[in-house]
Amino acid sequence: MTASSNSRSPAGRYGPVIAILIAVLVPVLAKDFLVFQATQLMVYAIAIMGLNILVGINGQLSLGHGAFYALGAYTVAILMDGYGMPYGWALPVAALVTFAAGFAFGLPALRLEGIYLALATFTLAIALPQILKLSVLDPWTGGVQGISIAKPEAPAFLPLNADQWLYVLTLAITCLVYWLARNLIGSRTGRALTAVKDNALAARTMGINVALYKTLAFSVSACFTGIAGALSAIVVQYVSPDSFSFYLSVAILVGLVVGGVGWLPGAFLGAAFILFVPNIAEGVSKGLSGAVYGVLLIALIVLRPGGSAGFGAAWRGLLSRTGRTTRQISLSQEKETGS
C-alpha cells in the first residue's frame, strides 16, 4: 500500500490527532513526577530526531551529539542566568548557536567519512565537558559547579503550574520539530540528502552539491539536538559539565537504533527506552544494572534488527490488509446491490 492510501485510512488520518489529544491530557491527569518524565521523554525524542537527520537520512555517523546537546543547554543557562534573558528568546538563540556550531564542525569534517568521522565526533564529545571546566570560562560556565536556572512560571492566563507549563511548551516545540523534520525529509532537500547517503558519486554526477548538503545535514542535526539540550536545561533547572559526558552521546545513539534508523516516529520509542529501561535494569539488580541493560538492548536488536521501525512496518502491513479487505467488502456489497 502506498503512503497516500495510508493517509486515507482512519488510523493514518486520525492517529496523529489522537496522539496529540492524549499528550495534551497528560498534564491534567498525571502527577507532577510523571509530567516531568513525559517532558524528559519529549526532550530526548527531539535529540534523537536531530541525530536521525544526520545518520538515518544523510548517512553520516556521529558519536558526539551530546556535545551539541550540552552547547544548547549552556547557551540557555548563560543567557538566562547571566544576562537575564527570557527563556522565550534564549531558546531561539540556542538553536542558532548550535546550527552555527554544526556548520562550523561539519565543514572541516567533509574530508572524513565512516569510522573517521565517528572518531572526530567522539573527540568532540570527550573534549567539550573538559573545556567547560576551564577556570578561564568560570565567569560564564560556573566551572565544575555548573549553573542553576530558575524554573519559568506559566503565563498568568493559563491555570497551570510550572511543571505543567514546561510540559506544554515542550510538547509544542516537539510537534514543531517533528513537523519540520518530516517536511524536510519529504522535500527536494531531503531527497538530495538521501541521494548523498545512497551514492555520493552518483549524486554529484546529477548536479547535487554533496559538500553543501552534508554540511546542511550536520547543521540541522546539531540545531535540533541543541534545542533538546536547551529545553533540558530549563526543565532540570541545572547544567554542569559532568551532566554531558560521553554516555549522553551513546544514549542518544542507542535511542536512534532502538527507534529505528531513518524512521522519524521511532524517536519517541527510542526516547522511552533510554529514559525508562536503565531504571528497570537497576530495579532488577543494582549491582548488575549495566549488564541487565546490555542484555535487554542486545535482545531487542536480535529480535528487531530494524528497531521500532519493524513494528511500524508491521502496523503499515496490517493497515494495508485491513484497507484491502474493507474495499473488497464494499465492492462486493455494491455489486450485490446493483444486481
Rank of each mutant, 00 (worst) to 15 (best):
W140R: 05
T141D: 05
T141A: 07
G142Y: 02
G143F: 06
G143E: 11
G143C: 08
G143R: 08
V144H: 10
Q145I: 09
Q145T: 14
G146T: 05
G146C: 07
I147P: 02
S148N: 13
S148A: 14
S148C: 04
I149T: 03
I149D: 01
I149R: 03
A150R: 14
K151Y: 10
A154R: 01
A154D: 01
A156H: 12
F157G: 03
L158D: 11
P159M: 10
P159R: 11
L160R: 04
L160S: 02
N161Q: 02
N161P: 00
A162D: 10
Q164M: 07
Q164V: 04
W165E: 09
L166W: 02
L166T: 01
V168S: 11
L169F: 12
T170F: 01
T170D: 01
L171T: 00
A172N: 00
I173M: 01
I173P: 01
T174P: 00
T174V: 04
T174R: 00
C175R: 05
C175E: 07
L176I: 13
Y178G: 05
W179L: 13
W179V: 10
L180C: 13
L180Y: 02
L180D: 01
A181P: 01
A181Q: 03
A181C: 13
R182W: 14
N183T: 04
L184C: 07
I185E: 15
G186W: 05
T189C: 09
T189E: 09
G190D: 03
G190T: 05
G190C: 06
R191K: 13
R191S: 10
A192T: 04
A192W: 03
A192I: 09
A192P: 07
L193K: 01
L193C: 02
T194A: 13
T194Q: 15
V196S: 04
V196A: 04
K197F: 08
D198I: 11
D198Y: 08
D198P: 05
N199E: 14
N199D: 15
A200F: 05
A200K: 13
L201M: 15
R204N: 14
R204V: 03
T205N: 13
M206Y: 09
M206P: 07
M206I: 08
M206N: 11
M206F: 12
M206A: 12
N209F: 07
N209P: 09
N209Y: 06
N209C: 10
